[in-house]
Write a protein that binds this DNA or RNA. Structure first.
Length: 286
RNA sequence: GCGUCGGUCGGAUAGUGGCUAUUCCAGGUGACUGUAAAUCACCCGCCUUCGGGCAUCGUUGGUUCGAGUCCAACCCGGCGCA
């Protein structure tokens, strides 16, 4: 049987990347990123993407695998990540998943099975113009079962449900296939005052490193304001204050997601020591 | 000092004399089936046994069955004139 796979997760700016590298170097591991924005090429400074230097020679995967003009998806992530896990294990190395996108992590670690219906952009475009009420009526006709427990005001979900129902006749129930690996989830957390300070520092550094230039470059490459906003990148007028505020809100939403997962073992990021590392993180790999 | 316009929740803002004071932002709680830093719901004066109860539109008085809305005086702020 395989050794368990370590998952490092937590809110933004808690130091996940550095910890993952540290562990990887100790156990001869390789890192698979779980970040919905770092998959895109060209989104570096704004997403806090790890630099070559910070990797310290440890291989990282699922960074820069998508074009920001096109939407990446969880299902795609799941596929790529599972392939990478296989590859890494086959090479006799240890996979380490590291990131802050809860949905992506769950897709892999809980083995969520997504209906095999690729996005239908023409349909989506058409349905986007319709009110949520009408969308709900449509869905009720197509699949009364799914309509019962869907968010009736959430257009994104309604559209997706209709998309699936049109293709398959109905939306399949959520299924989870027990993954063939065991995962150990380590959550890195910081008390809110410390997190806030770290975020402030990080955002200031982003501006110093050229965040505005990066955004300009993306715009020049033909990425619309709307798309940039979807990527969490465009603020009315990017100022450090605004970006800090948005980042704090995001961190809160991340925590809302992680809190539901009782399997996560939480470690205080400001107190993490070698001893703790050995005891709680590395022991299962011995 | 005179004239004038205004004062509504942490900030901004709506509100023909009539029931439950609007919307946006910020804040809080949560949801999550191929967009997930996305998208969405609820709360956001006080109390609550979650049914509701009590407050409240600068202050004080007045008119009225009924006032955020009308009247008067005062307080505060902007603008104009001195």
């Amino acid at each position: 049987m395989f050794k368990p796979i370590i998952v490092i997760l937590g809110q933004t700016a808690t130091g996940k990347s550095a910890l993952a590298v540290k562990i990887a170097r100790k156990v001869d591991g390789e890192i698979i990123s779980a970040d919905s924005r770092q998959v895109y090429k060209g989104l570096d400074i704004g997403t806090g993407k790890i630099t070559e230097k910070e990797m310290k020679g440890t291989p990282h995967y699922l960074l820069d695998v998508a074009d920001p003009k096109r939407k990446f998806t969880v299902a795609k992530y799941k596929n790529l990540a599972e392939n990478k896990i296989k590859e890494i294990i086959a090479r006799g190395k240890i996979p380490i998943i590291c990131g802050g996108t809860g949905f992506y992590i769950d897709a892999v670690t809980r083995g969520i099975v997504f209906p095999e219906v690729p996005p239908n952009h023409a349909l989506r475009k058409r349905l986007a113009l319709v009110s949520d009420r009408v969308l709900m009526l449509k869905l009720q006709k197509l699949d009364p079962e799914r309509a019962k427990n869907i968010d009736p005001r959430n257009k994104v979900r309604l559209i997706r449900a209709i998309e699936i129902a049109k293709a398959l006749g109905k939306v399949p129930k959520i299924t989870e296939v027990k993954p063939m690996y065991r995962f150990i989830k380590i959550g890195l957390y910081l008390p809110s005052d410390k997190l806030k300070k770290k975020i402030e520092k990080r955002v200031e550094k982003m501006f110093k490193d050229g965040l505005l230039k990066e955004i300009k470059k993306l715009k020049k490459a033909g990425i619309s304001d709307k798309r940039l906003k979807e990527l969490g990148f465009e603020y009315y007028k990017p100022t450090p204050e605004k970006v800090i505020q948005e980042t704090l809100k995001y961190a809160k939403r991340q925590m809302t997601w992680f809190k539901r997962d009782k399997e996560i073992k939480w470690l205080d990021a400001s107190k993490i020591q070698k001893v703790v590392l050995n005891k709680q993180v590395l022991r299962p790999l011995a």
